[in-house]
Design a protein around this nucleic acid. Sequence first.
DNA 1: AATTTATATCGTTTTTTCCCGATATATCAA
DNA 2: TTGATATATCGGGAAAAAACGATATAAATT
Lengths: 98, 98
Amino acid sequence: MNHLAVFKALSNPTRLQILTWLKTPEAYFPEQQEPFSTGVCVGQIQKKSGMTQSTISENLSVMQRAGLVTSIRKGQWTYYKRNEAAFEQLSLVVASEI
Amino acid sequence: MNHLAVFKALSNPTRLQILTWLKTPEAYFPEQQEPFSTGVCVGQIQKKSGMTQSTISENLSVMQRAGLVTSIRKGQWTYYKRNEAAFEQLSLVVASEI
DNA sequence: AATTTATATCGTTTTTTCCCGATATATCAA
DNA sequence: TTGATATATCGGGAAAAAACGATATAAATT
C-alpha cells in the first residue's frame, strides 16, 4: 500500500463522493439491474455526478491505481466497486504506522 | 473533522515525513533539551528536512489547520506535536465512515 | 462489415499546490 | 531601546492536479 498515493486519491471531493455512493450502491443506484456485488458501472456514476465521462473515468482510475477500488469488465460495461480490504488496511496504517 | 482537509494534509511527502519524525521525536531529535511532551520546535524540524524555514512553517500550519498537530508557543519557540486523538478518529472514519 | 454503445485515453486549459526568497512579527538579551 | 533569534506571512514562479472536449478502443447489435 502506497500511503501517499492513497491519501492523494482521497484528497478530492468528487472521489470521496463516489466512494460514499459505492459504499451503499443500493441506496444510490436503485435503477441498477446487475447485482451490486459486481459493482456499479461507470455510466451510472457519471450520470449521478453530473461531470463528464472522461473526468469520472479518470477519477475511477486514480482510485484503482491507489487500490481503493477494483473493476471488472462485463461486456461493454466496466463495474467498479470498493476494495474494503484496502480501507481496513488504511485504518490500521492510520492508527499505528503513520 | 474535515475529512478532505485531513487527506489533503496527508497528501504530501514532506508532511508525512514530519509526522513520522514527530511520532518518535526522541529517535529523530536526540539533541533536543526540552521534554518531548512539549513537542519539537520548528527550527529542529526545518534543519532536519533541509527545506526552507518558510516551507516547513507552512507545512506545519497545513497540518495544524487539519487538526493533525497542535502547537504551543514557549518564548521564541513554537513546539509542534502530533494530535494522536486525530489519528485515532481518522482511523475510525476510514474504517467505517468513508 | 457497419453502426451503436460504453469506457479509456489524449491534448489542452484552468486551478491548486508546493516551495522559495523576502519581509513582518514576536520574544529575548544586552 | 537596540540587536539578535525564532517563527509566521506574503508574493511569485514552477509543477501537479483537475476537468473538459475530442478521439480511440472495445464490445454488442444489426
